[in-house]
Each structure stands twice: as C-alpha cells, then as structure tokens.
C-alpha cells in the first residue's frame, strides 16, 4: 500500500518503470541500428525475435505493464502536483529547472500517442498497409522494405521527428531523475548525471531520427 499510495513510493514506481522503458528504448535502438548494416541484418534480427515465440509475448506484456503503470502514476502524480498549487504567483522565475522537466506530462502524453501511432504503423500495420512485402513463406514481412517504404511519405517522417524530440525532452530529465529518486545521487554525482542524462537523450534522438532521415535523403534505399 505504501508503495502505490505514498508520495515517495509512487516516485520509486515511476523510477523503476522508467528504467524498464529507458532500457527498452536503448535496446530497441540497438536492434534498429541493424538497418544501417543492410536488409539482411535487420531481417535476420526480426526473424530472431520472432523465433523466441511465447517469450515475445511475455516481453510485450511486461513492457505494456511498465508503460501503463508509468503513465497512470505519471498522470495521477501530475494531477496531485497541480492541485497542490491551486493559484500561482503573478511573476514566476525558475532558477534551475528546465523546459524538459517542466513538460514531463506533455512529453509523456505525446510519447503515448506516438507509441500508439508507431504500433499502428509498423506492428499492427493499419496506417500504411501498402508498405508490407512478404518475406519467405512463414508469414514474415520484409522489415527493411517496410522501413524504407514507411518513410517515403512526409507525414510519418514528421511524426517520428516530433515524437523523438519529445523522447529527448522526456529522457533528458527522466534519466538523471531516476537516479535521484532511487537515492543513487549525491552532490557530486548529480551535476554529472544531469549532463549524462542530456547525452542519453541526444543519443536516442540522433539514433532514432537518423533512420527516417537517411531514408529521406536516400542513403537507405531499396
């Protein structure tokens, strides 16, 4: 009860689910980067994932749970925090916090929308049914072709750019924040972690948007 209702307990939940999510985006980026190697690499990677069978579903359920918990508590905490300051000063000058930290709920909700779109785009395959080309006879899709075709039109590229910008904002505050929440920072490590946090954000941003951009600029092509 303490964990799910108290102020610090829910913070810890946010931090732990945050770790799961940030670990996921890092691993996902690593997997995705096989696209730079070529069509065979990324298709092999996709096949490997598929071959895990039920484990994929376990993994997906864990991710879904972490994601849902992170969002639900995030919204709940934000609403509480807003209610704690029913009226604000006429003049407000912030000395330390940044845009990313102040807009966590916005970037979080945008990311939720993005993830839904992303799943519809590449996983459930409903937004652009024309990009799927079968690969082999086991019901697999040519992922490489899907990615290249998927970023041929402007809208998905723009949406991915926007989505990843918010990921940068979210992670640049969230990453160092989880160390503080889990009691792992002190006065010396905190400034370092704040820089590291921004770096992690930048790496994710650059890594993720490089794929659609390289497709747009024709460096990844069929």
């Amino acid at each position: 009860m303490q964990l799910t209702q108290s102020s610090v307990g829910r913070k810890i939940i946010m931090a732990v689910t945050g770790i799961v999510l940030v670990a996921f985006v890092c691993v996902h980026l690593l997997g995705n980067s096989s696209v730079f190697v070529g069509a065979n690499a990324i298709n092999a990677y996709a096949e490997k994932l598929h071959s895990l069978g039920p484990f994929v579903w376990v993994f997906r359920l864990v991710m879904l749970a972490a994601f849902a918990i992170h969002i639900i508590f995030g919204i709940q905490l934000t609403l509480e925090n807003r209610a704690a300051t029913p009226e604000r000063n006429v003049q407000i000058k912030r000395l330390k916090t940044g845009f990313g930290a102040e807009t966590m709920i916005v970037s979080g909700l945008v990311l939720l929308a993005f993830v839904i779109y992303h799943l519809l785009h590449f996983t459930v395959r409903v937004t652009n049914p024309d990009i799927y080309v079968p690969l082999g006879d086991q019901g697999m899709v040519d992922v490489y072709v899907m990615v290249v075709k998927g970023f041929k039109s402007a809208l998905p590229v723009i949406l991915y750019l926007v989505g990843m910008s918010f990921l940068f904002l979210h992670v640049s505050h969230g990453f160092q924040s989880l160390f503080q929440t889990l009691g792992l920072s002190n006065d010396k490590s905190l400034p370092v972690m704040e820089t590291v946090s921004k770096l992690v954000g930048v790496v994710l941003l650059v890594g993720y948007i490089s794929i659609p951009l390289l497709v747009v600029f024709g460096l990844i092509k069929i």
Binding site: A84, L95, K96, E102
Partner: peptide, 16 residues
C-alpha cells in the same frame, strides 16, 4: 502528503 504538499519530481528549484 496529508498536509497537501505536492510530490517531488526533481526540479531542484528548492535548492536553488
């Protein structure tokens, strides 16, 4: 919490 204070989300404005 009972007194109606918000939750810490690590803005660090307090220290500043």
């Amino acid at each position: 919490k009972e007194q109606g204070f918000g939750n810490c989300t690590n803005h660090y404005e307090c220290q500043a």
